[in-house]
Design a protein around this nucleic acid. Structure first.
Lengths: 261, 261
DNA sequence: AAGTGGTCTAGACCACTAT
DNA sequence: TAGTGGTCTAGACCACTTT
């Protein structure tokens, strides 16, 4: 009722044993084999896997190779290992859900035509809040940049940000030439960044933001805030993206996913 | 200017060489050593690491151990390896940002007092949309549950969901007894779930939602939608959480983080 | 005491990159 | 051709869990 398997389906199924002539590494093949048994239901969640010694015998590989296959599946969240007890098939845990910016479609669009329109770039005096965020003295001059990012013809993201003003490192010109969304983030010099904090939360768009993003009806919006730090753990920049929620729809998959690597 | 190091600071710094008597595995110690050199700026982003052969000589460990240290740092996103070329210190990539539900404070609160209040649980006829999502016929009976989840005294999350009605598997009672937020998700039987899709997006709260969550002023809200599938890839349940944005503030860190594992 | 996973050795061969 | 990372072997010892 669920699915009808044709005769040719077998060709697409993972191999039933290790193929030493395959380009695919042995430990990946072994991980595939075990993974497939879980997908097929031969190994239910909570079931105990054969011991590593057994797997060594069964598949005629070295202990280290079994170890790597087990490690791979463990990292994938498919199984868990308990020293002295055994290895068990994990059940789906919602906590494992991870939302990656990488697979956010249209956000890092090398292929798509993303254009950047600089609305404003100037020096401003840091107010209390900016001073606190960027670890500068209130009143100190910082760089303020506003940009509108288009995907195709449509304004998609509105970005505002403050950069610390280091005369030894005039980066503003480079900043302004950025045409990639990716580059906007890493604006203040990729090499100098040691770490960064990213926050995402829901927000109402104000009138200016709605107008810039060409949103007529009230639409829920997302804010992506970012702070980058240098190798002395001092802030380099603080900024945030604003967009309609459909531009930043986060997705995660938990449990068994079809493909391995 | 940035920091003043006292004499005792040295004790807290990572060791300068491998300690064979340490509980910490050798490959972790080696990864730590390299990581520390990157943090200290001795190895800048883009710099080439010593070859694995060199590292074997320098630290007097076996090639496999070097390999594992390199692998660990590579998985952490700190370095990248290129076959035939070498290993290089990565610069911070925003795409690496991953927002984990696990480290969402107060969401999976074993320690906190989370209580679940079942507002409604009944059979409903599946409309077009429900039927499509749950792969049932329109008009078919499905289970509808509405719950309000409290953190302490305060209503924090409002959850609505549809469950397929499998008479062979009466799970509703168990569903209703769930007191943990974690359990609400995995409602339809943890063992039966093969995979799930989770979506997060911003939303306006409607009047009922605002009222239930005790929100007077209009507040931006977040929606966490989830669909779980069984081992035949058939949907088991479809539901979504609604909460104020401050209950679901996503955070990710990119670049170098202080602690290793 | 037996079984299990976690770590480690001291090599080996291969594919890829650069000169 | 030399150097590099990727894989793999065939063991070994340890810490932990269960009987």
């Amino acid at each position: 009722m669920v699915e009808i398997k044709g005769g040719r389906a077998a060709e697409q199924l993972p191999a039933l044993s290790i193929d030493r002539n395959s380009d695919r590494p042995v430990y990946v093949q072994l991980a595939d084999l075990i993974h497939q048994q879980i997908v097929d239901g031969a190994l239910n969640p909570g079931a105990k896997l054969p011991s590593e010694t057994k797997l060594v015998e069964t598949y005629s590989v070295s202990p280290m190779t079994v170890r790597r296959a087990i490690n791979l599946l463990s990292r994938k969240g498919v199984i868990t290992t308990h020293k002295g007890k055994g290895t068990y098939v994990k059940s789906v845990e919602l906590e494992d859900a991870a939302f990656n910016l990488r697979d956010l479609e249209g956000f890092f669009s090398d292929d798509q035509d993303t254009t950047v329109n600089v609305l404003e770039a100037c020096f401003v005096s840091a107010d209390e809040k900016i001073a606190r965020k960027l670890h500068v003295q209130p009143g100190e001059k910082v760089i303020y940049i506003r940009r509108l990012l288009y995907v195709g013809e449509n304004p998609a993201y509105y970005h505002r940000g403050y950069l610390i003003n280091d005369p030894k490192r005039p980066i503003v010109e480079a900043e302004l030439e950025v045409t990639e969304l990716r580059g906007v983030f890493q604006g203040s010099g990729n090499q100098l960044i040691k770490s960064g904090d990213i926050f995402i939360e829901a927000a109402f768009l104000d009138e200016e933001e709605s107008q810039l993003l060409d949103i007529s009806d009230p639409t829920p919006g997302m804010i992506l805030e970012h702070i980058f730090y240098d190798f002395n753990d001092q802030p380099l920049s603080w900024g945030w993206f604003v967009c309609a929620t459909d531009r930043l729809r986060l997705h995660a998959r938990v449990g068994l996913v079809p493909i391995m690597d």
